[in-house]
Amino acid sequence: MKKVALAVTLFIGALLLYAAKDFSVWGHLQSPASASPVSKHFIADTGVDTEVPNMVTAVLADYRGFDTMFETVVIFIAGIAIIAILRRTGADADSPAIQRESDVVAEPDLIVTNTVRLLIPVIQLFAFYVLAHGHVSPGGGFQGGVIMGASFILVALAWDLPKALDRLSVDRAIMLAGVGILIYAGIGLFSMLLGGEFLDYAELSHVLPVSREMARYHAMLGVEIGVAFTVTTVMFAIYANLSTRGRLEGGL
């Protein structure tokens, strides 16, 4: 088996290296990928089309917004699938859970909890900053959402999981994740109802007191908020389920 695997791997490697000699030189300015009309349009006209200085954000949330919607859906799916796989129901729930050595009752540490108390507001504020500033600097919904999710995970680490679940239960997390997708797809659907295509944010200028370009700008913030909702909650839900094998009790 190992030898077969090695042979397969080496064959794939040989194929890839064979192709590598055909690649354009690293960083070449006129390589097809860099000089294509599509890439040029993104660089030259993002400002004109959407007024967003960060091209990556504009491409992510607007030009290829449909991709990103499904990316959010992928996160949502991961959250649901993990719960669906791990949650015990019926006869399964009665089977004794595997006892772990780490299942000891311990008081949360004073120093750790107090430090975390101080840290969490900063982390959450930073998450909002990364989320809202994604138009002008690296950042956006996914990044902000992950940082926000980390703050909940930190609570679970410093105290124990029930303490974190008091603040955000898994059911509510999945609900909020759904709300995030509703925000994203809802903006898309709303712009469709206003007469454009699905996700054509420019049509929102009919209801917002701004130009078509600025409507795209603001709608991008809207969808990023939706993304952040989903990512925050699902990250926490994944942590809560994976760290306790779906039992949702006890600490780490």
Binding site: V38, Y63, R64, G65, E197, F198, L199, D200
Partner: peptide, 14 residues
């Protein structure tokens, strides 16, 4: 999707 139709923009932008 997003109204990036091929008439007004290079195809493949959206």
């Amino acid at each position: 999707f997003g109204g990036w139709n091929a008439d007004a923009y290079p195809r493949g932008v959206g």
